[in-house]
Structure formats: structure tokens, C-alpha cells
Amino acid sequence: MKDGPDIARIAALIGDPARANMLGALMSGKALTASELAHEAGITPQTASSHLRKLLEGGLVRLRGQGRHRYYALSGHDVAETLESLMGLAAGRGHLRTRTGPRDAALRKARVCYNHLAGERGVALYRSMIAEKLLVEADDDVSLTPKGEGFAEEFGIDMAALRSKRAPLCRPCLDWSAREHHLAGSFGRAMLTRMEALGWLTRQPHSRVIRFTTQGEAAFDARFPS
């Protein structure tokens, strides 16, 4: 391809197994140190530094400083959505990891996708909100309806604060495991944060897995029926 964006460069950055593992770890939405990312990728800290420099130069990650510590995070939601789409493409074509672990089923049920709820629970939330006319789809996009705005305020989400941000309010994100949409955007993030504050779920440390409490599952199913 002689004209247009250089997709080969981006593909090469993501395509390296070590860098792919690092980017996957950052899909949790948490900023991680170079040492933590080296552990995720199964490589030495020196090799990790070389990979992270390339990811920084390619614009896929950004660096945050806090005191003497340096943390790496995905550079934006567009990177996260691209990674999620590639995971779905790989799964759909049968390109799965040869060794599966006990977290695989848990990841499919509920996980963090950068900063919002994904997996079966995320898809169920999206479906229910569409069915209840809290969200409406149009032209490959999704938005809150007036009824949805009222629901959000009743659910404890400050919509004025969300609208003051530059980030998109609602975005559909194709779920890699369910191959259907779940809810992204600042509202999707706010929904996950609110459910966590209500005690419905907890994020597992050093993992993208989200676990619902027994009471949380009951409350979720009652509020967002399938």
C-alpha cells in the first residue's frame, strides 16, 4: 500500500508476541511499570525497555510519571478498541492460545476492556439497555435516549460531569469473546465504576477478570434483564 496510513508499521508493533502480551496487560486500564510489563511478557527488563520504546515511538502507549516511578498505559480508547477487535478476529479464525488456564472462562464471563465492562456481562448490559430503550443504535453508533439520561441520574451517575469531558459519551465496542457489542465511552466507564461502588463486583488484582458478588449478580439481573 503506497498511499494512506501506514498500517504495516502498526501491525508490526502489535504483531510481536512480547509487545502483544504487554498491550494485552494494559487492557486492564491500569498503568504498569516496565518491570511489571516484562513479567507479563516473560522477558527481561532490558528487553522490555526496548519494546516499550518502540511502542512509545509508535504512539500505542504513553508514559506517566509519579515521583521516581514511571508507568505505561495505552495511549487511548482507539488503541484499546483496535486490540479488542483483533482479539475477536483471532478468536473467530480459530487462532487461540494453545494453553488455556482457569481464568479463560472467567475472562469470557466478565472482564475489564480498558475501562469498561466486557464479556458476557458487558454484552448483557448493552442488550438490556437497548431493549429497554435506554440506548439507541444508529449508523454504527450508540447514544443515550432521554429515558436513558433519566436512568443514569437515578443510577447515581453525574451526567453533567461526563458531558463536560472531551471523551465520547457512548461508543459500541465489539466484544472479542461474544462477538457482539458492549458499551464503551465515558458512560460505559461510569457504569463500571458505579457498579463497583455499589459492591456488585470486584476487579481481580493483576488480571482483567471481574467477579460479581452473589448479591451483585442478583441486582444486575434484576436491573438489566436479558
Rank of each mutant, 00 (worst) to 15 (best):
L89N: 05
H116I: 03
N115S: 12
G92F: 12
E81P: 00
V61R: 05
G67T: 08
H95Q: 08
G67D: 06
R93L: 13
G58A: 10
A110F: 02
H69P: 00
G88P: 13
E84K: 07
R103T: 15
G101F: 13
R99P: 04
A105K: 09
Q66V: 13
M87Y: 11
S75A: 14
Q66D: 14
H95G: 01
V79F: 00
K109H: 13
L107Q: 13
R68I: 14
D104P: 08
Y71G: 00
G94Q: 06
R68W: 02
R111F: 02
A80I: 08
R108M: 05
G76E: 03
D78E: 09
R111M: 10
T82L: 15
A73G: 06
Y71T: 04
G67M: 03
L89W: 11
M87C: 12
S75W: 08
R97A: 15
L96G: 10
G76M: 05
H116Q: 00
R99E: 14
A73E: 12
L89P: 05
L96Y: 05
R68P: 13
A106Q: 12
R103S: 15
V79N: 04
G58E: 11
L83T: 02
G58L: 08
L60H: 00
G65S: 14
A105L: 14
E81I: 14
V112D: 00
A90D: 10
H77Q: 06
L96P: 02
M87S: 14
D78C: 02
S85G: 07
S85T: 09
G94Y: 05
L63I: 04
T100S: 15
R93D: 02
R64K: 07
A106Y: 00
G59F: 03
L107C: 04
E84G: 03
R99T: 15
A91E: 11
A80S: 10
R70L: 11
E81T: 10
N115P: 01
L74Q: 02
G76H: 10
L63D: 03
R108A: 12
A91C: 01
G88V: 10
G58K: 12
L60Q: 03
R103A: 15
R103V: 14
L63Y: 05
S75Y: 04
V112K: 04
G94M: 06
H116A: 07
L60R: 01
A91G: 00
T100L: 09
R93G: 10
G67C: 06
T98P: 01
A106S: 08
L96N: 11
L86K: 07
E81W: 02
A91P: 01
Y114R: 03
Y114K: 05
H116L: 00
D78N: 08
G101L: 12
L74T: 02
A91T: 13
T82M: 08
A110V: 10
V79I: 14
A105Y: 01
M87I: 08
A91K: 06
T82G: 15
S75C: 06
A105V: 12
V79E: 08
R97N: 15
M87P: 01
G58Y: 01
A80R: 04
S85E: 07
G67S: 09
T100N: 09
